[in-house]
Amino acid sequence: MDVFMKGLSKAKEGVVAAAEKTKQGVAEAAGKTKEGVLYVGSKTKEGVVHGVATVAEKTKEQVTNVGGAVVTGVTAVAQKTVEGAGSIAAATGFVKKDQLGKNEEGAPQEGILEDMPVDPDNEAYEMPSEEGYQDYEPEA
């Protein structure tokens, strides 16, 4: 019985440690998101679009440190934060509304985080759909 109880105690310690790591990862992701939003706020009209992409990228980098179902929630929060940063930029006159959601080359930025393969159960990952990809044929 002692062996059984000791095993359960060790398992509990492992769960607590994993929860603490997840909590730490979420806190880091939130900190990076805040950094990115402050970065966007300090940019001029020309830099705002690039700044919004930076927020998304920093958040995406930190999301990889967070495991399990938390990833889905962090990704949703990050996307809403990026959308909010863009709205703030438009409201303050840093950028025109028609410039939001495009990178410096004018290509749409939507789907940055949505296409990231995420499995809350950590069982399997699927690649994003290939609808947006084109076949590449090298020139002879």
Rank of each mutant, 00 (worst) to 15 (best):
M1C: 00
V3Y: 11
V3L: 08
F4R: 00
F4V: 01
M5R: 12
M5N: 02
K6T: 04
G7K: 08
L8F: 03
S9D: 02
S9Q: 11
S9P: 00
S9I: 13
K10D: 02
K10L: 14
K10M: 12
K10A: 11
A11N: 00
A11V: 14
K12Y: 05
K12L: 13
G14P: 01
G14Q: 14
G14M: 12
V15H: 00
V15A: 05
V15P: 00
V16L: 09
V16A: 05
V16M: 15
A17S: 05
A17M: 11
A19M: 07
A19T: 04
A19P: 00
A19Q: 01
E20Q: 05
E20M: 12
K21N: 04
Q24S: 05
G25W: 08
G25F: 12
V26G: 01
V26L: 08
V26A: 03
A27P: 00
A27V: 05
A29H: 05
A29E: 00
A30D: 00
G31Q: 09
G31T: 02
G31R: 14
T33F: 03
T33H: 02
T33N: 00
K34C: 11
K34I: 10
K34R: 02
E35V: 14
E35C: 04
E35N: 08
E35H: 08
G36M: 13
G36V: 14
G36Q: 15
V37P: 00
V37I: 12
L38T: 06
L38E: 05
V40R: 01
G41P: 00
G41V: 08
G41L: 01
G41Q: 12
S42N: 15
S42R: 14
K43S: 04
K43G: 01
T44E: 00
T44W: 09
T44H: 02
K45L: 13
E46M: 14
G47T: 14
G47C: 03
V48K: 01
V48T: 02
V48E: 00
V49L: 15
V49A: 10
H50L: 11
H50S: 06
G51R: 10
G51N: 10
V52I: 04
V52H: 01
V52E: 00
V52L: 15
A53P: 01
A53R: 15
A53S: 10
T54W: 08
V55L: 13
A56F: 12
A56G: 15
A56S: 13
A56C: 05
K58Y: 15
K58G: 00
K58N: 03
T59D: 01
K60C: 14
K60L: 14
Q62R: 08
Q62G: 06
Q62W: 04
Q62A: 08
V63S: 03
V63C: 07
N65Y: 11
N65M: 05
V66T: 03
G67E: 03
G67N: 06
G67M: 14
G68P: 06
G68I: 14
G68T: 12
A69Q: 11
V70Y: 05
V71E: 03
V71T: 07
G73W: 11
G73L: 13
G73F: 08
V74I: 02
V74Y: 05
T75I: 05
A76E: 04
A76Q: 07
V77M: 09
V77S: 02
A78T: 09
K80F: 14
K80E: 02
K80G: 03
K80D: 05
K80S: 11
T81L: 10
T81C: 10
V82Y: 12
E83P: 09
E83F: 04
G84Q: 12
G84C: 05
A85R: 09
A85N: 03
G86R: 15
G86Q: 11
S87M: 15
I88Y: 02
I88F: 12
I88D: 06
I88L: 13
I88R: 05
A89K: 02
A90T: 14
A91W: 07
A91P: 05
A91F: 15
T92A: 14
T92V: 06
G93M: 02
G93N: 03
F94E: 06
F94T: 13
F94P: 08
V95D: 08
V95F: 15
K96N: 12
K97Q: 03
D98R: 05
D98T: 13
Q99Y: 10
Q99L: 15
G101P: 03
G101A: 07
K102R: 10
K102L: 14
N103M: 11
E104V: 12
E105V: 12
G106C: 10
G106L: 09
A107S: 13
Q109N: 00
E110Y: 06
E110Q: 04
E110K: 03
I112G: 11
I112Q: 06
I112Y: 05
I112D: 04
L113D: 11
L113G: 06
L113Y: 09
E114P: 06
E114H: 08
D115R: 06
D115F: 13
D115N: 06
M116K: 01
M116H: 11
M116E: 10
M116L: 07
P117D: 12
P117N: 06
P117L: 04
P117R: 03
V118Y: 07
V118M: 12
D119E: 08
D119Q: 10
P120M: 10
P120A: 13
N122R: 15
A124W: 09
A124E: 12
Y125L: 11
Y125S: 08
M127I: 10
M127D: 06
P128E: 04
P128C: 05
P128D: 10
S129L: 03
S129V: 10
S129M: 11
E130V: 15
E131M: 02
E131S: 12
G132N: 14
G132Q: 13
G132W: 04
Y133F: 13
D135V: 12
Y136W: 10
E137D: 07
E137P: 05
E137I: 03
E137R: 15
P138Q: 05
P138G: 10
P138K: 05
E139N: 13
E139G: 07
A140Q: 03
